[in-house]
Simulated scan of single mutants.
Amino acid sequence: MSRRLYGLIARVMDIDISIINDNSSPETIPSWDSFNSYVLLDELETEFKTEFSIDEVVETKNVSDIKNHLKHHGIVLDD
C-alpha cells in the first residue's frame, strides 16, 4: 500500500484509508463521483508535481491505474 497515495484518496473521498486498495474505483467508493474525480486529479497533480494527459485521465479506472500513471511519470511510491 502506498500510504501517501491512499491517504490522499481517502481525504478527497472522505473515507477511511483502510477500505482503499488497488481495485478501488468509482464502482466501489460511492463518493468517487465525477466532481471528486476532478478534485482527485488536481490533488494528485499538486501532491506529486506532475501533469496527466487527457488519455491518462480517460484511461484511469481504479487505483492501480493511478499507480501505473504515476510510475510512468517517474514517481516512486512507498510500496
Rank of each mutant, 00 (worst) to 15 (best):
D78V: 04
H69L: 01
P30E: 04
E27M: 07
T60R: 04
L70E: 03
D14K: 08
I75G: 00
E27A: 03
R11D: 05
G7V: 03
S64E: 08
I29V: 15
S31C: 05
T28E: 06
K67R: 12
I20Y: 09
E27S: 13
T28F: 04
S31T: 08
E51N: 11
V63Y: 11
I15V: 13
E43T: 09
K71R: 07
D65H: 11
E45H: 15
N36E: 04
P30Y: 10
E43W: 05
L41H: 07
T46S: 04
T46Q: 13
D55T: 09
M13Q: 10
D14A: 10
V12Y: 01
R4W: 04
I66V: 15
W32M: 00
L8T: 00
S25D: 04
E43H: 09
L44G: 00
I66Y: 05
D65F: 08
L77G: 01
D42N: 02
I29S: 02
E56V: 12
E27I: 02
E27C: 07
A10N: 01
T50I: 07
E45N: 09
D16Q: 13
D65A: 08
K49I: 02
M1K: 03
S34K: 02
D14R: 05
D42W: 06
L41M: 15
S53E: 08
F35V: 15
N62C: 12
H73L: 14
Y38M: 10
D42M: 11
E47Y: 05
E56L: 15
L5E: 00
I19G: 06
H72D: 11
V39C: 03
L40V: 10
